[in-house]
């Protein structure tokens, strides 16, 4: 079922608290198909939480999130919401790739096994099929020669690129990046950003939480600046970065630029 008129991601008045701490306080975001949306903001502004809500790793308290026109985590019948069963949530997550700050590669599997694990275990692809596609993806991120290496034998940048290949192996419609370069040595950041730029140019819809202003400027289609659980300012990256309207944005940018 395609909803080509629908944006890839739409959130409507999303709230989320952890205990007494309100992390998201009414987020409305729309990411059209094929767009790269960069989320900026100081730590604790709720940007990672928003990302984790989009693939239902966190349950939202109120509001709605749609990905490709499908309500995330719930099924609506008339006015009533029904929680989705775990296996339906899992099915929704298959369409959404996620890349974590700490890579989270499976350390007991080599690079290629990491990439083919979900396609064979979840999608029921044959080993040969997944194998071929896995090698394709690894060469796409420049790591074909590291297929047999365990994560502990790879640098952080290489691990993160394997993690990107692993997410892509599920053929997601949407990719979420949660500070993908924050845990990397400065000299390794470039390779990961290159892999992400390559992906952006191929037309993948991406939501990227990052502090890499250069990346936002180069491939971003829209930029969202979050602070204190709300979207303070949004617009085209070049506009927001060169001519921020809100004082909070100006303040933040003066510190990171």
């Amino acid at each position: 079922m395609t909803h080509s008129a629908e944006p890839m991601v739409r959130t409507e008045n999303v709230h989320k608290s952890f205990g007494h701490v309100q992390v998201l306080r009414g987020i409305d975001v729309t990411v059209p198909r094929g767009n790269v949306c960069v989320v900026l903001g100081p730590s604790g502004s709720g940007k990672s939480t928003l990302l984790r809500c989009i693939n239902h790793l966190e349950k939202i308290d109120s509001g709605r999130i749609w990905v490709d026109g499908n309500l995330i985590g719930y099924r609506q019948k008339g006015d009533k919401l029904y929680e989705l069963h775990d296996k339906d949530v899992a099915a929704q997550r298959r369409e959404i790739g996620m890349v974590f700050q700490r890579f989270n590669l499976f350390p007991h599997m080599c690079a290629l096994e990491n990439v083919v694990e979900a396609p064979t275990q979840v999608k029921g692809q044959t080993k040969a099929q997944a194998w071929r596609r896995g090698m394709e993806l690894l060469s796409r991120v420049g790591l074909a020669d590291k297929a047999g290496n365990y994560p502990s034998q790879l640098s952080g940048g290489q691990q993160q690129r394997v993690a990107i290949a692993r997410a892509l192996a599920m053929d997601p419609k949407l990719m979420l990046f949660d500070e993908p370069t924050s845990a990397l040595d400065p000299e390794l950041v470039g390779d990961v950003l290159d892999a992400m730029k390559d992906l952006a140019r191929s037309g993948m819809t991406m939501v990227v939480v990052t502090h890499e202003i250069g990346f936002a400027r180069e491939v971003g289609d829209q930029l969202i600046f979050m602070d204190g659980g709300v979207v303070v300012e949004s617009g085209h990256p070049r506009e927001v970065l060169t001519n921020p309207q809100h004082p909070r944005t100006r303040d933040f940018l003066s510190k990171v630029l």
């Binding site: 790739g97 974590f100 989270n104 499976f106 275990q121 979840v122």
Partner: peptide, 18 residues
């Protein structure tokens, strides 16, 4: 085991059991 492991697995669409 780092909770990020189960999170990464479920983010790939695996069930909790898997």
């Amino acid at each position: 085991v780092d909770p990020g492991q189960e999170e990464a697995a479920t983010a790939l669409g695996m069930s909790r059991g898997k």
